[in-house]
Each structure stands twice: as C-alpha cells, then as structure tokens.
Design a protein around this nucleic acid. Structure first.
Length: 161
DNA sequence: TAGGCCATCTGGTCCT
DNA sequence: AGGACCAGATGGCCTA
C-alpha cells in the first residue's frame, strides 16, 4: 500500500468535468472518463441540438436558478466525496490496526486487505482452539500443527486467482 | 504487458 | 434533508 499512500488526497480532485451541466459530464474528457458508471451514463443525456434550442428558449431567470441548482448539486457532491474519502480512510486505519496485531512472516510483510481479513479470521479460529485445549488441560500443540490457519490461508490465495 | 491491488468518484438506497 | 453505506466503474501503480 505504501506506493499508493503517498498519493495526496488532493490529487483526487473532485470531478465535475469543468462543466456545470451534468449532461456535459458525459463528454468523455480524460478526467470525465473517471468514475463513469452505467447509471450515470444513463442519467446523462447527450447535449443535442434540440436540447440546446430548448435551453435557449427558456428565460434567463430559469437559467440562473438552474445554475444555482447545479452549484448546490456540485457542492453536495463534493461534500459527499469528501465524506466518502474520509470513511474509506477510517476503514483503512482500522485495517492497519488489525494488520498490526497479526503475525506475519517476514515481519514487515504487508497483507492485502482481503488477506488481512481472511488471515484474521483464521488466526482467531486458531487462538480459540488453543483456548479450548487449555481449558481442558490438554497439551497445546505447536501453532504449525494448526493446518487450518496455514492451509486455509494459502488455499484461499489459490482460490482467488 | 497482463493482472492484482488500490484510491477515488459516483449514483442509489437506507437510516436518522 | 442530509449522512452513512454500498457496489460499480475507472485509472494509476507495481510486479511477475
């Protein structure tokens, strides 16, 4: 993650295609091509000549209120993007905290997100087994004898490919 | 160069 | 109404 983490948050500038009219956002500028979902494309009708004509016919007051509306829309979107970014940062912090208590080999190996979650699951499972054995006063086998912990982890890596 | 991983943007949905 | 959460899409970076 280190390579990506040096990407400053500001680098992901909010995208609005530099246009107020959302319909023009479908234009496909380099920045505009980012984050274009099918739903968004469907909601972004092309700026046809008829459409432009219709717009021109409308009164100035209406155009003004529309631009005000789109400004409000844009501001809400920017705020939502901000919150979403923060939410994901918090999620990543939690993931880092989880990583920090998981044993890895080598020590500085960094688990991916999915690996972290799966390994944490298996690690908890292994610790639970140890606890059960301890409660029954049974000798605790060495960790390497917990095939689940190691096997499952590698198995899922295999599965994932 | 293909594939994996990631950050970010976005629109939809649910909740308060 | 606004915020949280989610899933899909996209582009950048890195590695085999």
């Amino acid at each position: 993650m280190a390579p990506q983490s040096d990407r400053s948050p500001d680098e992901g500038q909010p995208y609005f295609g530099g246009a107020e009219d959302p319909s023009s956002a479908a234009g496909g500028t380099p920045a505009g091509s980012r984050g274009t979902s099918p739903a968004r494309s469907a909601l972004a009708p092309r700026d046809t000549a008829a459409r432009r004509k219709g717009k021109a016919r409308r009164g100035r007051g209406k155009a003004r209120s529309e631009s005000l509306l789109s400004k409000q829309k844009r501001s809400r979107r920017m705020k939502a993007n901000d919150r979403e970014r923060n939410r994901m940062h918090h999620l990543n912090s939690a993931l880092d905290a989880l990583r920090s208590v998981l044993p890895t080999f080598p020590d500085d190996a960094k688990l991916t997100k999915i690996e972290t979650l799966r390994f944490a699951h298996n690690y908890i499972w292994a610790l639970t087994q140890s606890l059960r054995l301890a409660e029954q006063n049974l000798p605790e086998p060495p960790a390497c004898l917990y095939p689940q912990l190691y096997f499952r982890f590698s198995e899922e890596k295999e599965e994932g490919k």
